[in-house]
Computed example of a mutant assay.
Amino acid sequence: MTRLLHSLCAGLALALASAAGHAETKTLYVGMNGGNFERTYTQGVFPDFEKANGVKIVVVPGTSSEILAKAIAAKDKPQMHVMFLDDGVMIRAAGMGLCEKLKPTPALADLEPVARLKDDMAAGVDLGMTGIAYNKKLFDEKGWAAPTSWLDLADPKFKDKVVFQSAAVSTFGLHAFLMFNRIKGGDENNVEPGFKAFPDTIGKNVLEYIPNSAKISEMAQTGEAAIFPLTPTAVATLKEKGIPVEYAQPKEGSVVLMVAECVIANNSEPDLAQKLAAYLLSPEAQAKALASGNIAPSNTKTKATTEAGEQKLSAIHNYMKTAVTLDWDVINAKRAEWNSRWNRMIER
């Protein structure tokens, strides 16, 4: 009986020790886009932080709109600790009080100025831009020159060959529409020129309005899609899969499109969440993201680890010279009205 009691006590002690060990491993939940972004960070960036800090990072995948909706629903008791959102959506989130100010760090100080959002409530981790992508195989077959302008989307030779992401739900589509609007004489405060001209120009060429860019891979391979709004990062990812697409920087400028991070206000692990956010802005983490998934660094001190990475870095910095920033305060205030109008007039 004594031996049995000792055995039971020893077993209980081991179980308690094991439970205590598991209790020490904290979990951080990070909301971000799935696909390439999730793979890049879970495989190439998060592991070193997890190991160094004894923490497990779990990705909550979704589009920016979906992640924002989750954050709003759980505002009083956040289920996530850090979230990644497209810059325009992030500005909205910060304005709703969903983010807490990032703590000053050397990494934050070394960011491209455009990557530090208002009052450092969020910061860009992926510096990009929306421009024009095209199906090089199809262009070569037709003898078409590479596009140079947003107005090329309205060229009659591309009738039923333009694939356009819905401006009501896609940042890419919204960017393209607003640049077209600017070319037609409007700005974010006046979208009348764009809405008036779009149906009889670009609209006449659109084969399909898609909710996001997922279908572009398939449509480029089948030859259905000739030209469409997209980012250099997305183009690079498609090219790595053997899909014959190229990026073209419009002469009017591309549109700055960052993926930004913020630490969610009132989360259960504020110090650890801030530590993760700072790490993700560091040159070390961003070099890993560039190498693992073509994520373009926002930290000016990031060094590429390969020649291909250096070329990507050089191209991004070159595109940034003519990239345009939009007034997201105006956009966010008008977005619901625009969405309704877009659905009624453009995608009807």
Rank of each mutant, 00 (worst) to 15 (best):
R39Y: 12
Y41L: 12
T42K: 07
T42Y: 02
T42L: 08
T42G: 06
G44K: 13
V45D: 05
D48C: 09
D48A: 15
D48H: 14
F49N: 06
K51W: 00
A52G: 07
N53T: 03
N53L: 00
G54H: 11
V58G: 08
V58R: 12
V59E: 02
V59D: 03
P61G: 13
G62D: 06
G62K: 05
G62V: 12
G62E: 03
S65A: 07
S65M: 00
E66Y: 02
I67N: 07
I67Q: 02
L68F: 01
A69R: 04
A69W: 00
K70S: 09
K70N: 09
A71N: 05
I72G: 06
A73G: 05
K75R: 13
K75E: 08
D76Y: 05
K77V: 14
K77P: 00
M80Y: 05
M80C: 06
V82W: 07
M83G: 02
M83V: 14
M83R: 00
M83Q: 01
M83T: 03
F84V: 10
F84N: 11
L85V: 02
D86L: 09
G88T: 15
G88F: 14
V89R: 12
V89T: 15
I91D: 10
R92M: 09
R92C: 02
A93V: 13
G95E: 09
M96E: 10
G97L: 02
E100H: 10
E100L: 09
K101V: 15
K101Y: 13
K101S: 07
L102C: 08
K103N: 11
K103I: 14
A107H: 05
A107W: 08
A107L: 04
L108F: 04
L108K: 02
A109R: 08
A109G: 01
A109I: 08
D110C: 08
D110I: 10
D110V: 09
D110N: 13
E112D: 08
E112W: 10
P113H: 09
K118Y: 03
K118D: 11
K118L: 07
D119N: 10
D119C: 01
D120V: 12
D120Y: 13
A122T: 07
A123G: 07
A123R: 13
G124L: 11
D126Q: 06
D126K: 03
D126P: 00
M129P: 00
T130P: 00
G131K: 10
I132D: 05
A133D: 09
A133E: 11
A133Y: 03
A133F: 03
N135W: 01
K136Q: 14
L138D: 04
L138G: 05
E141W: 14
K142F: 11
G143R: 15
G143S: 14
W144R: 07
P147V: 10
P147W: 08
T148C: 03
S149L: 04
S149H: 13
W150A: 11
W150N: 11
L151M: 15
A154Y: 08
K157T: 12
F158N: 04
D160V: 15
K161S: 14
K161P: 06
V162K: 07
V162G: 08
V163T: 07
F164Y: 15
F164T: 15
Q165D: 06
Q165F: 13
S166A: 13
S166W: 05
S166T: 13
A167I: 10
S170P: 00
S170C: 04
S170I: 09
H175Y: 14
A176S: 09
M179C: 03
M179D: 06
N181K: 11
